[in-house]
């Protein structure tokens, strides 16, 4: 069952997402958090700014969740991506899900994160410590 799927500018309440996916039907709960890292290949980040084509991003996140639910026996699933300016250590993305056994929970969570990074129209802009900014666009 898919519960929360959202794109938000507010801080992600990941404790609430974990509680949302906990159920006696599942023996395993996996939470992934993507957080703002300070160093990338030796360069220092001050903050990140995420931008989204929000309506399509929401739709893609929902489609990924539905596809995951056909591949693994997911009891409950919640996924949230934050946009706007984020400071070091803040949570940019959270995926919480539960399954009867742990192998499926780890696999499904990894697959969902890879799909989000590949398909959901969201972009991050690095604000480096040297004062420059840089959009991250893989393969371009």
């Amino acid at each position: 069952m898919i519960s929360t799927i959202a794109i938000t500018t507010a801080p992600i309440n990941y404790q609430r997402l974990v509680e949302e996916v906990r159920t006696p039907a599942a023996g395993a709960v996996v939470l992934f958090l993507g957080t703002v890292r300070e160093l990338t290949a030796g360069k220092q980040t001050l903050s990140l700014v995420y931008e989204a084509y929000t309506e399509m991003a929401q739709k893609q996140m929902a489609a990924i969740a539905e596809e995951a639910a056909t591949r693994w026996p997911i009891a409950k699933l919640a996924a949230v991506h934050r946009i706007g300016p984020l400071g070091l250590g803040e949570v940019a993305v959270a995926v919480a899900l539960s399954t009867p056994h742990r192998a499926a929970a780890y696999e499904a969570n990894t697959w969902i994160m890879e799909a989000i990074k590949a398909r959901v129209p969201i972009w991050k802009q690095e604000h480096w410590a040297d004062g420059t900014t840089e959009w991250q666009h893989p393969s371009s």
């Binding site: 993507g34 940019a92 990074k117 398909r119 969201i122 893989p138």
Partner: peptide
Amino acid sequence: YAAPDTRVLPTSEVVCFPPVSGG
């Protein structure tokens, strides 16, 4: 996501963007 041969109408919502980098 649209393929190169997808038809565009005057009423279509068309959006262009670079490779995504969420997460």
